[in-house]
């Protein structure tokens, strides 16, 4: 049991990571990765939805008829998304507005459906909950890395604090940091993700070569 849990953690965080290896569910969140804080909230929301829908589906796995299971999964996911959406609206309304429709789009995020179908519907609640959390984190940390670089290059800031300007001034560039507007726009997101996949694939390949 314990080793299975450790395996799940390893698989979800790196070896079989939903973003870099399976390339699933990038639609709903890639769009908000130009600001670190938004991405963090989005990742937290997704992890929450993922963990609790996995738990619910796992608890109900003997009750749900096979033929309508997709519909039930979608309904469970949407209910948790509504909870996330309402709590974001009441606590951090300005970020909720910036995220726009993307919180709602967690519903159609393929990762959640994929994990529910592949794992939660045939495993015990405890382990399904863990898998939900880990897949959520495995997904979020990559987007957070992308968001970190996009924000740093696009605005010259880290979590909203200007860092590049002082840095440039200390090395003698008086006009400060010239923001890469390109990074904030959509193409920057595509290129950053492509780079990330490139690096992680190369590392996986190098690893395999060493084993052989």
């Amino acid at each position: 049991m314990k080793s299975k849990a450790i395996d799940i953690i390893k698989e979800d965080l790196w070896k079989n990571n939903p973003v870099t290896v399976q390339i699933l569910g990038i639609c709903s969140t890639l769009a908000v990765t130009n600001i670190f804080l938004n991405t963090l909230l989005m990742g937290l929301g997704l992890t929450f939805v993922m963990a609790f829908s996995a738990l619910t589906i796992s608890l109900l796995r003997y009750v749900i008829p096979q033929r309508v299971r997709m519909m039930v999964q979608v309904l469970v996911i949407s209910s948790f998304v509504i909870i996330v959406d309402l709590s974001l609206k009441t606590t951090v309304s300005h970020i909720s507005r910036a995220l726009g429709p993307y919180v709602g789009l967690i519903i159609t995020n393929c990762i959640i459906m994929g994990r529910l179908e592949a794992f939660a519907s045939s495993n015990k609640p405890g382990i399904a909950f863990l898998d939900g959390i880990m897949s959520g984190i495995g997904y979020s940390w990559i987007l957070l890395v992308i968001a970190f670089f996009r924000e740093l290059l696009g605005f010259g800031t880290v979590v909203g604090i200007q860092v590049m300007d002082p840095l440039m001034q200390t090395i003698g560039v008086t006009e400060g940091w010239t923001s890469w507007a390109f990074m904030i726009m959509a193409p920057g997101g595509f290129f950053m993700l492509a780079l990330f996949i490139w690096v992680s694939n190369s590392m996986a390949m190098g690893h395999r070569n060493m084993e052989n």
Partner: peptide
Amino acid sequence: PALRGAGIVLIISGIMAMGFV
């Protein structure tokens, strides 16, 4: 090799996105 599949598609999409921008 490491760029085959999704990687190269994303880079091409990025270039296309620049055109659409």
